[in-house]
Structure formats: structure tokens, C-alpha cells
Design a binder for these strands. Sequence first.
RNA 1: GCCACCGUAGCUCAGUCGGUAGAGCAACUGAUUCGUAAUCAGUAGGUCAGCGGUUCAAUUCCGCUCGGUGGCUCCA
Length: 632
Amino acid sequence: MVSNSRAGDYPPPPGASQSFGTALCGLSETLNGDEMEEHEKGRDAFESDEAYRLHALRHSTAHIMAEAIQTLFPGAKFTIGPPIKDGFFYDVDVAEPISEESLTDIEKAMKRIVKRNSKFERSVLSRPDAVALFEALEQPYKVDRIGRLPEDAEIMVYDQGGFRDLCAGPHVQRTGNCKHFKLLKVSGAYLDGDSRNKMLQRVYGTVWRTRADLDLYMERQEEARKRDHRRLGTALELFMFHPYSPGAPFWLPKGEDLYNTLQGAMRGLLMEGGYSAVRTPMLFDKKLWETSGHWDHYQEVMFHFAEGHHAEGDSDEEDDSQILGLKPMNCPSHMLIFGRKRRSYRELPMRIHDQGVLHRNELRGALGGLTRVRQFCQDDAHIFCTEDQIAGEVEQVIQLVDKVYSAFDLGYRAKLSTRPADKLGSDDLWDKAEAALQNALEKAGVEFVINEGDGAFYGPKIDFDVLDALERPWQCATIQLDFQLPRRFDLSYIAEDNSAHVPVVIHRAIFGSFERFIGILIEHYAGEFPMWMAPEQVRIATVSEKSVGHGQDILEAAQAGGVKATFDDADDKIGKKIRTWHGSKVPYLAVIGEREQEDGTVSIRSRKSREMETMSLPEFVARMQGEAKPPF
RNA sequence: GCCACCGUAGCUCAGUCGGUAGAGCAACUGAUUCGUAAUCAGUAGGUCAGCGGUUCAAUUCCGCUCGGUGGCUCCA
């Protein structure tokens, strides 16, 4: 059976944040093992008994769901039904699509199977017997899977009271062990994950060892939904969307402030790190994209159109030379900048940073909130260097990623993607490049997994995934080696021996896109941004109209000191103002009444504590300024 | 793009088994001038996403379009 590609928690973040990893280990009563089958296949692959047993439980529940679907949808053909993080799914080919409404019916049928308490009985079949069995059961996808099993594979079938499925196991002992489940959603899924293939129906479910675990899981999912950046972004007035420009956020004043803060902080960090910033065009002649290879490999993701004025209904073939494309990436511009004059090895490594606006024509169905948009900016940079400099440069970027993510207390997972089948360049070059990336990761002490064959055609890469509130991974930082682009642009530098060499290019981003990263941060902080990022750092609230004058003085002093302050002088009671302020997630509230007015002081309370602190006006401004310093 | 679901006031959501809609918060007006998590009263606000069909009658049923959500594919 297919192994779980999404299971496993990310390594704990350097600051050991509790926002991630809602693993429910330890909540179940001590395991006594009586609910597992005796056959302990693959036990070693799991880090704990709990993980191993949950895996078996989820796998078993998937089988129960399959049987239930078969009774309700006669003729259903099953493909794969693996356990995944927190649950399982099964992909099934049915004549009528499965709707969300039918989930309750499927659940009812599953409950009957659980109640029946059938034993999961394992038998080993010969290949011809197994093929004959699944042909008789009219399960062509299973027959196909048997054909794809390795020569020496032991072919096993599990029988749960009549319903039989091809499966490597292990399972729990009885269907009665799978009581605490819930079906969550249905979706389409392509056969073998290939969009050219038929679309199957995928049903997702979750299952836990105890009722309490299930309830806790559902509650946590509900809590996570409250942190959804789309919800918070609307509530906190950070951004909006409009149907006239799907996939393109409108940054409202507070969101724009947050965006600018992050852009500035990253720009400052990179300037310190020896980068120089540039600004480049958005619209380019098609010829550029032909040179870069985007026209051949990326055209469908680009927005492009004809230059010049065309009369309505003018259907003449467009002149190719007039096609313009909106940039989906900055790299070609940077190639042109590098190539504008003769370069010496003394200039290397050359690091060019660009926060330009990018457009990608993403499929409509793929768009969502800030995490997948059509218009965005990256904290993009390209490093031009010699082959000998690759290791050092990559290591430096990995350290930057770790430094920045630690500052946000964000956990991440690193993936090293190696050469794909249709690669460009010699094996020798790839050997060196992959080794350089791997060494850099090891030297930096960053845990990583290897994604065999998942590299770009032009070079291997390291991607860094971060989790959102619902623990879905999103690719943010990336480090990609590129041996091809410099060649396509005919770039060279003069080495010490006065001969010309082709530089290597490293594409790298730390946040990735500002849009996606901000979306992640909103969820990570549940909207409660640290002082330095907060678009509103302190709100000044008057107790009554009598102290408006003093409040105004404080506002002016704060703003003059660069503190992002606002003034709530509304005709409301202070209790109401506190409540409203708390919902706004602003870090500090300054309460100004007649006492403060007389003493010339400021009384503040923070989001984290109800305790008041009173201080002089200069002390207040200095404290706000001190806490607003960026951590990197 | 594919599969399923959703679209009611600025926001969160009721409701209508077909007879053109309601709450809370927000907004606005008035009263109140108040010391640490909601002062009182009132007012206004909706082509029930859009277009078409069925019907005496559509927000409700059907179709299409647009947008969104969850997945698939792809990717920052």
C-alpha cells in the first residue's frame, strides 16, 4: 500500500513554539497492545507504539469505509486508501459522484460494520490466485496494483467479515476497534495523481483511539479555523479581495503597513548580508522569455498579450514580435543586469535582491486567500558565483532562513530535491551540486528529507515548508541552484587566469512571497503581531471628554517618536473601549483619565496582562520605541 | 482546469417545504461625561451574487455565468 507522504510532525521550531504540532500523543490511556494484530510488519518505521497503532487504526478504518461505500454505491472500484496525518482517505471510482450529503449515510453503514466486530483476517496469496480473486471481485485497479508489486513481494489480502481488500497491513484486530471516526470531506482526485487520468472520488476521514481524542481533534480544528488568515484579515482590516481581480489582494492601510514593515526588515537584513537591491520592469518582450526558457516551460502560467492597438474584431494573426509577457519571476531581469558589462571574478559572489511585482496565471481552482495568489512580491534574490563558492553561499542562505524563522518562532521542514529524469547538464555537475546542498544543510545542522527526482530541470534545490493553522504545509523559502540560465543568457566572468567562465546562479527567497508569508504569520500569531510588526502598536483611550487634551498630547508625542498610535476619544465608557481594543489585538492600550492628566503620566496595559503600569510621557515613548525594534 | 459544496445588511449568521426577509455586532442620531472586558433610547441599511428558464407568483425549484471554500493537479 502507499505510504503516508504527509505524516510526521515537523522538527520543533528553534524557539519551541507551541503553536505547531497538535499531536495528541499521551492523551490516550496506556496501550496494552491487545487491539493490534500479532503480525507486526513495518513496526520499525514508526517512532512510537502510539504512531504505529494509529497508523493501523486509520488503515483499518479506511477498509471499513470502503466496505460501506461498496454497499451504498454498488459497482464501486477501489484504488488506494492510505492512512494520512490525523486520518485516512480512500480513492474510489464510482458511477455517480459522492456528495457531502451521502457522508452521513456512509458513516451509518460504517457504524454497522464496526458493531459487527469482524476480525481482520490476513491471508497470503500467490500472484495468480490474487489476480483471480480481484478479477472475480471486479476490482480492476487492485488487479493492476498486483501487477505493479515487486517480483518477490508477499501478496496479502485482508478479510473483514466478507469484504476483502489487497493490503500489506498491519491492521487492528477487529472492526470494533474503529469506533471513534468521522468522515470529513469529499473531493476529486486523479488516478495515480496524474491530471491526464480519470478523476476519482476521494473521501477523507479521521479516526482516533478514544472518543476524547476525536472530540479534542475536532475542537482543535474548529479553533484553527478561527485563526484562518482570511477571517482575521477581514476582521483586522488588513486586506480585501474583489471579484474584479481574483487572486490579487487589495492591501488596506493596516495591511500595507505590515507589508511595508516586512519588506523593510528584509531589505535591511539583506543589505547587511552583502546584497544590493534593484528594481526591474514587469513587462517584457516575448524574446526575453524565449531566451530564458519560460516561453517553452512556463507559458501557460504567464499572462501575455499583444502590444499596440488592435481594432475590435481584428482577427489578423498577431505579429510574434509584438507579444509581451508579464513577469512571473525576476531571474531573467537579473541575468540582463549581470550581462550588461564585462564581469571579473573579483565581483563574485554578486547578490541581487528584487522585491518586484510578479504575476502568475494560476488555475482558478487553485487560488485561495493569501497563500495562493496571482499577483505577489517575493523577497527574491539571485546570487552569481563560481562553482567553488556554491557551498559557502548556500550555507549562508540556510543560516539566514533559520535566523529569520527563529525570530518569528516559526517551525519549518527542509526538503532537498535531487535531479529529475529530464535534467539538463552533466551528471558530474549534478553530483557536485547535490553534494554542495547536502553538505550545507548538514553543516548548518538543519534536519531535512530528500525528495528524490523532484529538482528543477536546471538544478537541485532546497525548499522550506511552513505549516498554516490547519497544519497544511506551504512552501516559503527556497534555494535553487541553476547551471542553465547563465548559459542561456551567455553570461561569463573573467577568472584569475584571464579566461572566461560561466557563473552559477542561486535563486533564493527567505519569506518566499510576502503574501503567503503574511498569511502564515497571521495564523501563526492568531492576529496578535509582536510590537515591531503591529500596524497599530498602542491605542490611547480617554476615560471621559475631560482628558481629551492630555490624550491628544500623548498621541502627538508617540507619533513624533515613530510609535504607531491611535486615539479612541469616542463617547464610550472605558470598559467598552477596553473590550473593543482587546478584540483589535493591538499590543498596548493607554488609559487616560483625570489622574493621568493631572500628573502628566500615561497608564498602559498590555494584551498579555490586565495589570496597569503608570509612567511619564517620555518613559512611555521610549518603552514603545524599544519594544518595536525588529528582531533581525 | 477537474470533483464536491457554498454565496441572505459592512461583519457573523437565522429564515423562507414557492407568496419579494430577520437578529447580534458595526454605522448614524440623541441622551449620558462615565476609571479597566459591552450605558440607554432611537434611526438607517438588503435587486437574498448575476443572467435566463419553469410558475399566477422565484431569494427559495432548474440551467448557465461570476466569485468563494475544501481537495486533486501545479506551485512562492
